[in-house]
């Protein structure tokens, strides 16, 4: 249990670093780190297959996409971000209020589900659920991937001027 708690704190710290760091490339790595910690958490929550996907795709592939995009669009306005970091506390203080409110709620343990937990009817093996029970979703995945391929073909092609 203590390990879970430490992992949750690590997840939040990684996310906080992602949000607060001034350099864009570090932000992208912070996201990868967040995903990696999240993958360990998923593994500890009895979801090994999802953890593998999270680790390989979200911690592996998505940062590559981000780093590619960043390197292709380099020379961003870094300094503007640092200047704004000071004034944005004034602008978005209410988010801090939300955090405090969440803390108050949590201290009262109001976040527990107030319904009796359902009796599980599904098999717990993800392979059976995916391949034997949700064929429509698989079709949807095929369609999304095809759409993504068209997106790459259309959007990444250089426009001739």
């Amino acid at each position: 249990m203590a390990i879970n708690f430490i992992l949750v704190v690590a997840l939040l710290l990684a996310a906080l670093w992602t949000v607060m760091t001034a350099r864009l490339i570090r932000s992208a790595f912070g996201l990868a780190l967040t995903s990696a910690v999240l993958a360990i958490l998923l593994f500890r929550l009895d979801s090994p297959m999802a953890a593998v996907f999270e680790l390989s795709v979200c911690a592996g592939l998505i940062p590559v996409i981000f780093v590619t995009t960043i390197s292709l669009t380099h020379r961003l306005s870094q300094d503007a971000f640092q200047i704004r970091q000071k004034e944005r506390w004034g602008k978005y203080w209410y988010l801090l209020v939300i955090v405090v409110l969440v803390g108050v709620l949590l201290s009262r343990r109001a976040l527990l589900p107030d319904v009796p937990l359902p009796v599980v009817t599904h098999p717990t093996d993800v392979r059976i659920v995916m391949w034997n029970m949700h064929h429509v979703d698989l079709l949807g995945q095929v369609a999304v991937i095809l759409a993504g391929v068209f997106g790459v073909v259309i959007l990444f092609k250089e426009v001739k001027k």
Partner: peptide, 8 residues
């Protein structure tokens, strides 16, 4: 499935 196809 509804979510998946909304995303498609």
């Amino acid at each position: 499935a509804l979510y998946v196809f909304i995303e498609v």
